[in-house]
Nucleic acid binder design. Sequence first.
DNA 1: CATGAATGAGGATTCATTCAT
DNA 2: CATGAATGAATCCTCATTCAT
Lengths: 188, 188, 188, 188
Amino acid sequence: MRNQEAIVEAATEVLAEQGTAVDVREIARRSGVGMGTLYRHFPKKEDLIRTVLRQDFSRWAESARRAAIGAEDPWAALTDFYEQALTGYARHRVIVENFALTWSDPDLEGIRQLRLVIEELRAGAEDLLRAGVTTEDLLLLLVSLGHAVQLTDGGHPLMWNRLLRISLDGLRADHGEPLPGAHSSRSK
Amino acid sequence: MRNQEAIVEAATEVLAEQGTAVDVREIARRSGVGMGTLYRHFPKKEDLIRTVLRQDFSRWAESARRAAIGAEDPWAALTDFYEQALTGYARHRVIVENFALTWSDPDLEGIRQLRLVIEELRAGAEDLLRAGVTTEDLLLLLVSLGHAVQLTDGGHPLMWNRLLRISLDGLRADHGEPLPGAHSSRSK
Amino acid sequence: MRNQEAIVEAATEVLAEQGTAVDVREIARRSGVGMGTLYRHFPKKEDLIRTVLRQDFSRWAESARRAAIGAEDPWAALTDFYEQALTGYARHRVIVENFALTWSDPDLEGIRQLRLVIEELRAGAEDLLRAGVTTEDLLLLLVSLGHAVQLTDGGHPLMWNRLLRISLDGLRADHGEPLPGAHSSRSK
Amino acid sequence: MRNQEAIVEAATEVLAEQGTAVDVREIARRSGVGMGTLYRHFPKKEDLIRTVLRQDFSRWAESARRAAIGAEDPWAALTDFYEQALTGYARHRVIVENFALTWSDPDLEGIRQLRLVIEELRAGAEDLLRAGVTTEDLLLLLVSLGHAVQLTDGGHPLMWNRLLRISLDGLRADHGEPLPGAHSSRSK
DNA sequence: CATGAATGAGGATTCATTCAT
DNA sequence: CATGAATGAATCCTCATTCAT
């Protein structure tokens, strides 16, 4: 049903503007559907939010992935990936607002995708990365810097760029000893 | 009046547990005071939250500062500072939840203190830091890693430690070129 | 929607009984609707009160107007108008309680209507009225006597009738000199 | 105790400014006494209001009485009395706000005084008054015009003066037939 | 006797969710 | 299947009154 799409689209917009505290009615209004229809598709407000979160997340991750494809070398791919991901981060308030949730939800398709992409980038740049750096490290770094983006975007749009350079430099093989491998796997 | 303290204490607890969305009555109940008393001391819910935030923030920052004092050398001081600050971060949900606010409020006493401490640590370790690293960079790094702490503390308590090492290595003078100085000052 | 009417009706009742200080829930209860419904129609308590006020006012003014229609001569029309208006006054507590507000709100449709009616009556009885009597005078007299009605209705239902006769006699052309015209117009 | 006086004085001020809806604490604050003291003297807010009301009323009535004393003739005495009473009316918000209450409380000393004064004036001007005009009529007229004062004082300070002239003219012996005597006495 | 902190029942308003049409 | 009016619990805040100090 195309109503479902309209709802998700409107919700994406509204959530980006006002965060998860919005009135559901506002979403219904912008979707052009009634409350009943909205609740038919998403029995709980949170269901809708989750759906938006997933879609938003996927789009964001995908755009970052594409940025890495055209890079000249593996290191540039990694760099471009981070640049693109972080640049887009600020626009995705729901992601930010819910990343704790997202992060700890191992079933979330989006995060699985993202992990795959990063894993690939990591494997490609393995020679340049210091030993012991895991996919999980790279993923957490992304989220961590994402937070910096959030905080600074209003005032100093490019401050986070400096952090990114620092971190990337810290990741290079010629900078620092190998990292111990202990905490690299995510088990539940 | 010790009621004021009781309220702040209870609020600190409750806010840590449930976030800023709690019912004011819950705080009153746990404080053992009536609504009126609570509102006598804090005319708006936000006043109370801000107070908790400040106190929480101060305590946290102070404990980090103390950790840096006993260090053997300037670099260890910086390292210990980060370790301690991040270790305590997870316990301070209000700080986290409101750091955006905290961050952008230049009048907040707490953040001014924190900046001073970091500035001192930076100055002390200047020879070891790559050129161009600013106090603001170090501050943002702290918050950024703080977010990582938040996300991982539930499941993988020490994952953020790896990020910290990476970042610190990226900050060393022998790793990487000088950072450009452009965005180093916070102006309004 | 007939709920709107039910709400206004219940509110009219309740406001007449208890004044504007009533709990909104009481109105909701008597209307047989939930709080939400009430607030859907009247976002602020005052909106509801204003609505009741207007309706009450209109009905009252209209009944007075009709009373003047059947009169034998212009003077009787004026007299009957006052009689009817004042007789109905006591039943309209909201009007009374809010007349200051009503009075000073030049946009209020009701008062505009009332003024028109009085103007017509005045014009019709012009030969019998002492020179200089304005519509505004007649309007203020009405409200003024209305207050007397309020005060006496509980105990001496017809005392105000005496005042009315006195005032009307004072208005006759053969009683007293012309009134100075100065304050006859309402300007902003 | 002079505290009692201070409280009443402060209350008079505050009530005149803000009406009976004020916070009791505001009165305590301005009195310079604590809540406990205030409540020792006036166990209920209404007790305080009543006390203020009485005093305010007495003063107002007394000033009107004095205005009548110096008059040249009985009719002027009556006229001056009304003029003065009405002129002072607007300043006595509590009186106004509570006149219904005042009016219906036959034990209120103030109103007894006022009635005595009016009775005297009426007796003095008896030959000039149309037959049947009672003290009660004159009293009600006063209150009724008082309301007009209230309503117009903000915008048209002297509109009520015109009503006063009209009414007084209506009261003269040569204007109109005797009024029937029926409702002249206040019985309970 | 005085103080003013403490109490807590209300009161206005919002919003996720349901359900008659 | 869609609509959007209806629901009412939940929430913040006020203020008359009490009572420990």
